[in-house]
């Protein structure tokens, strides 16, 4: 598979009250076209920083990003904004409470001039149906929707741009278990149907195990391990990865066995 996005030696330093804080430290990886790459880490790992750099919200202090083999400029033209879209963690804040759901989705169509004016209303309805909501939800306010429904709207808005790469920033962390399962299923189905590429940012390894093709583990601004999902869980090579997996609260005996097996080499390291 061809890489859709390549990240070369990207570092990012923030200025925190006079003293520089290094949020990312020489990170390199590629995102292959059509894959779901999970970026995993705890707070301070740099996972949000890399997401913001991919989206063009932050500029890297050094290093470069290539999208479809072309370097991403500092100021992105509309076409590049269209190609890379975002789904945020908190659907409560990511939808404007004073605008209708339809208006939020339609903004993407208007900005990128997708379809003719008359066709856009119908397009909003189609997008809502694609994420499993009735088309007439377009007139509702976000306050009238449940958390899961709001997140579906946020996904529809990202899809409206006809992007190739979606950055999913903890898209199910704020949702209840049952809703999370449905939204994860929806995301997996959409990726298949639209041949999208995902960067899935999360702290939840159990979710990663079930949705990602490959996993990149970040710790304190460094990429410590990147591997295909099944390999990473069967045989994590970095101690931090092992520690992360063994900290997951599990719900079944089988999982507990896997976890205990991973804990042993960890103790042996010490």
């Amino acid at each position: 598979m061809k890489p859709l996005l390549q990240v070369f030696e990207v570092s990012k330093t923030f200025d925190a009250g006079g003293k520089p804080v290094r949020a990312l430290d020489g990170v390199s990886f590629s995102v292959l076209a059509g894959e779901c790459l999970a970026i995993v880490g705890e707070s301070g790992s740099g996972k949000s920083t890399i997401a913001n750099i991919v989206l063009g919200i932050y500029q890297p202090t050094s290093g470069a990003l290539l999208f479809q083999d072309k370097e991403l400029p500092d100021v992105r033209p509309l076409a590049l904004k269209q190609a890379i879209q975002l789904v945020q963690q908190n659907p409560l804040s990511s939808l404007n409470p004073r605008r209708s759901v339809g208006a939020s989705i339609r903004l993407a169509l208007d900005v990128h001039d997708i379809g003719d004016r008359a066709g856009r209303k119908a397009r909003v309805g189609e997008l809502l149906e694609e994420v499993g909501l009735p088309a007439d939800f377009a007139g509702r306010s976000p306050a009238a929707l449940s958390g899961g429904q709001r997140q579906r709207v946020a996904i529809a808005r990202a899809l409206a741009c006809r992007s190739e790469l979606l950055v999913l920033d903890e898209p199910t962390s704020a949702l209840d278990v049952l809703v999370q399962a449905r939204v994860l299923k929806l995301l997996a189905d959409i990726r298949r149907a639209r041949r999208l590429t995902y960067i899935f940012i999360t702290h939840d390894l159990a979710v990663v195990r079930n949705i990602a093709d490959r996993v990149a583990v970040f710790e304190k601004g460094r990429l410590v391990e990147i591997a295909p999902t099944a390999d990473l869980f069967a045989n994590p090579s970095h101690p931090y990865t092992r520690r992360l997996i063994s900290a997951v609260p599990v719900t079944s005996r089988r999982e507990a066995e896997l976890r205990d097996r991973l804990q042993e080499p960890l103790d042996a390291d010490l």
């Binding site: 049952l178 999370q180 399962a181 159990a206 869980f233 079944s252 999982e255």
Partner: peptide, 28 residues
């Protein structure tokens, strides 16, 4: 309760939790 959930709601919850053993995303 975890090994053998009895109520339909508890069963749905248990089925919906993603597992690190990778059993896929369930249809809810």
């Amino acid at each position: 309760l975890f090994d053998n959930p009895l109520h339909p709601y508890t069963r749905a919850l248990m089925a919906a939790v993603p597992r690190i053993t990778g059993e896929g995303i369930p249809e809810i």
